[in-house]
Design a protein around this nucleic acid. Structure first.
Lengths: 143, 143
DNA sequence: AGCGTATTTGCAACTTAATCTCAATTTCAG
DNA sequence: CTGAAATTGAGATTAAGTTGCAAATACGCT
């Protein structure tokens, strides 16, 4: 469970498990899909246990370091994150017209990337692939 | 030649070809590889024909719209761009230890992405693939 | 359970990249 | 050449995210 992982991460670093940190963690794992820090902060403002903007950002950074959360892109309006625990690796297609995000995964793509890394003697650990274009709906809408 | 392309782009949009815009264009195409807007601005400050920061940023956006320049990533410290004219498509491996950027291209990777797009009924136009990890040198350096 | 201390919090001030405002200047079609 | 429309530069502004610091809190120790 994610809170156990986070707790262990904090202990191992000599950090403390505060209610604010738990509030941020819970809020993130109650969100389905992607989120922006500001949106996250607003949700927390309206929840039972609150946390300041500073704490939200600080906790978010800790969560990224712990590996529970990943920053998946930087839009013109700040970062976009998603939680990765219980959420296997995937890449994104982003519609430049309506902004919809389609998640996809391809084993062949992963394999191919591994091969390319080998070829370049590069020890790849993570990657981000973002394909931009038009989603099915927006293609139709275009006269 | 890039200045002709830019000129045509401007005319087609009813915009004007100013010396400041040319200065930005020339500076960008004299840079080999990647650049950051602030760095670009500083170079222009020291060149023959100068342009203000505002003009540099405005021109940069126009160049991206014209397709001559591409924004390849958003680091913690702002955006990174590169010119694409006379510079065929490629992706990047970024060493998380020393920051070196390795450019690579794989036809199979491109093909595979096209297939995936078809599968998802997505009309992909551009993509960015960034593989992070350790470069050959940093792997060796690691005891 | 209570103590002591190192960590954390919240607030507001700050930082940094990038955009905007607007008066003065420049481009360029006619 | 002329004049309308676009552009420029300087500085103000915006917005995301970070930081300093005094007060509050978590938690190992006894």
């Amino acid at each position: 469970m994610e809170s156990k992982i986070f707790r262990d991460f904090l202990i191992q670093r000599g950090l403390k498990l505060t209610k604010e940190r738990m509030a941020v963690l819970n809020q993130i794992f109650s969100i389905h899909g992607h989120f922006e820090p500001e949106h996250l902060y607003l949700n927390i403002r309206n929840s039972e246990i609150k946390a300041s903007r500073a704490s939200v950002y600080r906790t978010l950074n800790l969560l990224v370091e712990s590996g529970l959360v990943e920053r998946i892109s930087r839009s013109d309006k700040g970062n976009v994150y998603e939680h990765t625990y219980g959420h296997s690796h995937h890449d994104h297609m982003i519609c430049t017209t309506c902004g919809v995000v389609i998640e996809f995964f391809s084993e062949s793509l992963e394999e191919l990337q591994k091969m390319i890394c080998t070829e370049y003697h590069f020890a790849g650990t993570t990657h981000t692939l973002e394909i931009r274009g038009k989603c099915r709906t927006c293609q139709k809408r275009k006269k």
